[in-house]
Simulated assay, not measured.
Amino acid sequence: MHITYEPKGICARKVEFDIEDGVVKNISFLGGCDGNHKGLAALAEGMTPEEAAKRLRGITCGPRDTSCPDQLAIALEDFLKNQ
């Protein structure tokens, strides 16, 4: 299943990922810090949505209350709630 999420409070304008066979795949961000997003995607790739959300939830970026990892966690939690 392909998911598109519009994050709030970060530089990236869109987060997309797939859930295949119970794991997160093909994570991509539109806008923001390309290198950090590639690193985040590589680390979360292959995790279950539950595990990735648990590890990423609550991470902040500078003075912001959220971050790209946190917004990915929120997108994964939304997916889990709506499945």
Rank of each mutant, 00 (worst) to 15 (best):
A73F: 00
G46L: 13
A12V: 00
L80A: 05
K14V: 05
G32F: 04
R13H: 12
D78P: 01
I10T: 13
C68Q: 04
K38P: 01
P69M: 07
G32Y: 06
Y5S: 02
E20Y: 06
P69L: 06
T4F: 03
L43E: 03
Q71M: 11
N36T: 04
C68H: 09
E20A: 13
S67A: 12
N82D: 11
T48C: 06
L56A: 06
E6H: 14
M1W: 01
N36I: 10
K38T: 14
N82R: 15
T66K: 08
V24K: 09
E45M: 03
G31D: 03
D18T: 05
V24R: 10
H2N: 14
P49S: 09
D21Y: 04
L76W: 04
Q71C: 05
P63E: 03
F79L: 06
T4E: 15
L80H: 02
A41R: 00
N82W: 00
K54F: 13
D21G: 12
G22Y: 05
E20M: 09
A41T: 02
G31M: 06
C11D: 12
G9A: 08
P49T: 06
G62W: 09
T66D: 07
I19R: 05
D34V: 13
I59W: 07
A53I: 12
L40Q: 12
A73L: 12
C68R: 01
D34I: 09
L30I: 11
Q71D: 08
G46N: 08
L30A: 13
N36Q: 06
A73S: 15
E50I: 10
G58H: 11
R55W: 02
T60Y: 06
M1I: 04
Y5R: 08
G39K: 06
L40Y: 12
L30R: 14
A44V: 12
I59D: 02
R64I: 00
S28R: 15
V24P: 04
A75M: 02
D18N: 13
K25E: 10
S28P: 00
K81C: 03
Q83M: 10
G39D: 09
A73K: 03
L43V: 15
T48G: 02
D65F: 00
A44G: 05
T60K: 15
M1K: 05
A75D: 07
N36S: 15
E77Q: 13
G58T: 09
M1Q: 09
Q83C: 07
R13A: 08
K25D: 01
N82S: 15
H37E: 13
R64Y: 05
Q71T: 06
H37K: 03
